[in-house]
């Protein structure tokens, strides 16, 4: 079965990648997951300077999900380069490095330092951390800022740039388009949703910063809708993220237009989750006689057909940005649109 996909110039052997912050630097799990069987490993977001992260408590489980307020704890660029890169290079894995910055200039500095590293196949730009007071999701919800930043970053590396967006925005379509305009090679939709949990008995907040990012099965329907919205808005590939626990979940995101998917919280529960998602996808597709993942992609991008008195199907299929129906056509052949 052909599960190979492309994210810009980067070829992935299959569409399943591990989400940033949930799989360490790959080596932590390498003794239980054959990294060659998954599409790529996205490493924990690295920032220019080391970050200690937030005060405890950083985690609270909620119904069907978990809130986290890690606060981007990481070793910082210098030690990432010195300690992590050699290890990453030695892994039999495609590596996508996640970068975080409080300003465009910080991201530029990170890319100047890492942009030519051979061990890194692509960069994911974390425009969406909900747990930092500066340079987090809110700062990066400005479409013009995103576009300008990507324009500035694009020349710094030949590796693809993936813009990871927050779901807590008025229009993810608008932000995704701004990223595309600025030169992003792909969009990740989405990071965690801002949430809060209380301990009523103790009359207190369960997280130190009171709010955190919600992940896990609880967010899957929300994430699926955002992923769909983003995928309809842009031509570049979209990586779906949010609550993916199984091959079936992954295929839902791909059905609404995602090119690849990210497995996050699931790895905390089953460290082999990403590999299991690949197996599950394969089994589902095989049972339906589908031989290429591209045949599945975008299958359910269109809203369900409503009774006939509505406009004809062809016109309803017109995407919101009005750039031509052909891109998002879903004619049942499964070949929804061309990809770069």
């Amino acid at each position: 079965m052909d599960l190979a996909v492309r994210i810009g110039s980067l070829a992935l052997r299959n569409p399943v990648v591990t989400a940033s912050g949930t799989f360490g630097y790959g080596d932590e799990y390498a003794h239980v997951v054959d990294l060659a069987t998954i599409g790529a490993v996205i490493t924990k977001t690295v920032t220019l300077e080391p970050r200690a992260g937030n005060q405890p408590a950083r985690i609270a489980e909620t119904a069907g999900g978990m809130l986290n307020s890690i606060g981007l704890e990481n070793v910082g660029l210098e030690r990432f380069r010195r300690e992590k890169l050699p290890k990453l290079a030695a892994l039999d894995a495609t590596v996508i490095a996640s970068l975080g910055g409080e300003t465009p200039a910080e991201l530029a500095a990170l890319l100047e330092a890492l942009g030519r590293e051979k061990a890194i196949g692509a960069f994911e730009l974390n425009f969406s951390c909900p747990n930092v007071s500066k340079g987090g999701a809110i700062y990066w919800t400005d479409a013009r800022r995103l576009e300008r930043t990507l324009r500035q970053l694009k020349p710094l590396t030949r590796a693809p740039l993936i813009a990871k967006l927050s779901p807590d925005v008025t229009s993810i379509a608008e932000l995704a388009r701004a990223c595309e305009q600025g030169g992003a090679d792909a969009i990740t939709a989405v990071n965690t949703f801002v949430g809060m949990a209380l301990d009523l008995d103790a009359a207190g907040h369960r997280l130190n910063r009171s709010t955190g990012g919600l992940s896990g099965p609880a967010i899957k329907p929300l994430a699926l809708a955002r992923c769909h919205e983003a995928a309809r808005a842009v031509r570049i590939p979209v990586l779906g993220s949010g609550g993916i626990m199984s091959g079936r979940d992954a295929l839902e995101f791909i059905a609404v237009g995602a090119t690849a998917v990210q497995v996050g919280t699931a790895s905390f529960i089953r460290p082999r989750a990403a590999a299991e998602v690949v197996d599950g996808m394969r089994a589902f597709l095989a049972a339906r006689g589908i031989r290429r993942i591209a045949e599945w992609r975008g299958r359910l991008m269109e809203p369900p057909a409503t009774p006939a008195r509505r406009a004809p199907a062809a016109r309803r299929a017109k995407p919101r940005n009005g750039r031509g129906a052909s891109r998002t056509r879903c004619d049942g052949s499964g070949r929804s649109r061309a990809r770069r």
Binding site: G21, T22, F23, G24, E28, Y29, K44, G53, Q55, P56, A57, R58, I59, A60, E61, M66, N68, I70, E73, T265, S267, F268, P271
Partner: peptide, 17 residues
Amino acid sequence: ESVMACGTGVCRGCPLP
């Protein structure tokens, strides 16, 4: 003890000062 998610060091969710 701490509240934990992964138990393996990757989530950074169980800090003690």
